[in-house]
């Protein structure tokens, strides 16, 4: 879980792409997934997702994300199939229409979520926010909020597992509980977690302030984010995807 959001260092084509291009590509894949109505095209988009992961040299991570999403997808698929009444029955209460709609829904979900998670694997958060500020002129305050939120995810999970460990050691049976039971046991422990999080957020604001948070301008970033041939290629590729989604 902790690792799903962490940056994987590398120097692949995808790593070197401008962060803004990566966001653009992600958005286009999402739009294409919603525009198209063809199952086969969605499968194609999924292949594109996986290919991006492989080209970026993060095949392991891609596989982990895919596997994680698959669990949710199977659940949604069954739900959708059982609830759809339209179409010709194929087996028991399952209809052909149901299978097709359910397939599209879960494929869309996977196709849309994969690049969102992959962007974080192949882009440093700071590059992402700095590029948003420099290139897209997003106000720095918003970018800072986003990057701090993402920075705190692993910390939050670390704290959570620390609390569970401490509670297990004093006899709360976390080590034997699973699923919903475990969740209901975690809930009462959220009070200390929230208190420490709020305290920390405030202190982080101070730490940023004394290191010139207010002096930061669009030009402050040390790294610059020029567009290169790779970006042009990626943009053309995404436009082609979009055209395909509309025309096919």
């Amino acid at each position: 879980m902790n690792n799903l959001f962490q940056y994987v260092p590398g120097n692949s084509l995808i790593h070197r792409m401008n962060p803004v291009t990566k966001i653009f590509l992600t958005i286009i894949i999402c739009v294409a997934a919603f525009v198209t109505d063809r199952l086969l095209f969605l499968v194609g988009l999924l292949a594109v997702d996986l290919l991006i992961g492989i080209v970026a040299g993060v095949a392991n991570r891609t596989w982990n994300i895919f596997r994680g999403l698959l669990k949710i997808a199977v659940f949604l698929f069954l739900l959708q199939v059982l609830l759809t009444r339209k179409g010709t029955p194929v087996f028991w209460i399952i209809t052909d229409q149901g299978l097709l709609t359910a397939g599209k829904v879960v494929l869309r979900l996977v196709v849309v979520c994969m690049p969102l998670a992959l962007v974080l694997a192949v882009t440093r958060i700071t590059d992402l926010t700095n590029a948003m500020v420099q290139v897209l002129h997003v106000p720095y305050q918003y970018a800072f909020t986003l990057s701090t939120a993402i920075r705190f995810i692993p910390q939050f999970l670390e704290e959570m597992s620390g609390i569970m460990e401490a509670q297990t050691a004093r006899g709360v049976a976390f080590d034997k509980a699973r699923g919903l039971k475990k969740f209901s046991m975690i809930l009462p422990l959220c009070a200390p977690l929230l208190i420490s999080s709020v305290r920390r957020t405030d202190q982080t604001a101070v730490a940023a302030e004394v290191r010139g948070f207010r002096l930061r301008t669009r030009e402050s970033g040390y790294k610059k984010y020029p567009f290169t041939a790779v970006d042009l290629g990626a943009v053309l590729f995404s436009l082609a995807l979009l055209a395909g989604a509309i025309l096919l």
Binding site: I125, R151, Q155
Partner: peptide
């Protein structure tokens, strides 16, 4: 509290 001092992920 070093945790709250560090702002960046890297």
């Amino acid at each position: 509290d070093v945790e709250s001092q560090i702002i960046s992920p890297l």
